[in-house]
């Protein structure tokens, strides 16, 4: 299988890339890692007229902590996230389970976020940790909270000419922990069900902040807001997590498909929420 014809623009700066996108209009697509886009083009389900390759833009490949945030540039590959010392909690937990090792060498975290595949891992992690997406368009840079960014399956609120140039993930200042439990059928598969959990504890050991989000069980990655509200202010406990798990299970609206029945997927959400929160709490208590 081979892609159909397109024009290729190799951008050297973000401004050049954005300008090329303005010129290309609707038929233009940015190309970073290409690990989703190129297969879609080979299968001929995507037919961009112009590809704007951003891989040669300098300065977008850093993953580092700054101003209380984990900053991730548009050319940071999943493998860079795996290898980074700057990550924490759910981010660190999810990274090794994205795609497979070779795809991780090429695919980018920002590209995956922008792709908004409801079966993608990163948007759940960003929802749980309360991250922002940094976009740059013709009129400059703006920051969009991940909850506002994810709009639907494969759609975001990104402007037509905007490029995701980075992510800003708040780094907890106190004791914190996170987990990303993913049930996949094999390495390289999308999640059948995955649960991102994030907990911050105050000095008393009570939960000061909580994040919980689900992958592959709704039309978009889903933040379980009522469970987060439930958790905050409480001492971590098995009973509490079981209660949160019920809310997560209720928030999931999975479908029957070849991966399994809806009832079972909801059960996995329940189980993985319990286990994920317990793991996050344990990590936080030990931090």
């Amino acid at each position: 299988m081979f892609p159909s014809r397109f024009d290729l623009v190799v951008a050297q700066t973000v401004a050049e890339a954005v300008e090329a996108k303005v010129d290309a209009g609707e038929g233009g697509r940015f190309l970073a890692g290409g690990q989703s886009l190129i297969p879609m083009m080979k299968m001929r389900v995507a037919f961009p007229e112009t590809l704007i390759d951003i891989n040669r833009i300098a300065g977008l490949d850093a993953i580092e902590r700054s101003n209380g945030h984990l900053q991730v540039g548009a050319l940071v590959r999943h493998a860079d996230v795996v290898a980074s010392d700057a990550t924490f909690g759910a981010v660190a937990a999810a990274a090794p389970w994205v795609a497979d090792p070779l795809v991780r060498n090429r695919g980018t975290m920002c590209g995956s976020v922008a792709h908004c595949d409801p079966e993608g891992d990163w948007n759940s992690v960003l929802l749980a940790t309360g991250a922002d997406v940094i976009a740059q368009g013709p009129s400059g840079e703006r920051s969009i909270s991940i909850a506002d960014f994810v709009d639907g399956a494969f759609t975001s609120t990104l402007g037509e000419d905007e490029l995701v140039v980075g992510l800003r993930i708040p780094v907890p200042s106190g004791r914190s922990g996170g987990a990303y439990l993913k049930l996949e059928r094999k390495i390289g598969d999308y999640a059948t069900v995955a649960v991102a959990s994030h907990l911050e504890l105050d000095d008393s050991g009570a939960i000061a902040a909580a994040g919980l989000a689900l992958t592959s069980v709704n039309p978009i990655n889903t933040k379980v807001a009522d469970a987060e509200v439930l958790l905050v202010g409480q001492q971590p406990s098995e009973e509490l997590f079981a209660e949160a798990a019920e809310l997560a299970a209720a928030a999931a609206e999975p479908r029957d498909d070849v991966r399994g029945t809806a009832a079972w997927k909801r059960q996995v959400v329940r189980t993985y929420t319990k286990r994920g929160l317990a793991a996050a709490a344990q990590q936080a208590e030990g931090s």
Binding site: L8, I38, P39, M43, L51, D53, L102, V103, R106, G188
Partner: peptide, 23 residues
């Protein structure tokens, strides 16, 4: 055709990548 099998693996600047999914 789906970046799944790795039969096309090459090292690009020392890093293994699937050459069917790189232009």
């Amino acid at each position: 055709d789906t970046t799944s099998c790795g039969a096309c693996t090459v090292l690009m600047d020392g890093t293994p990548v699937k050459a069917c999914t790189v232009l």
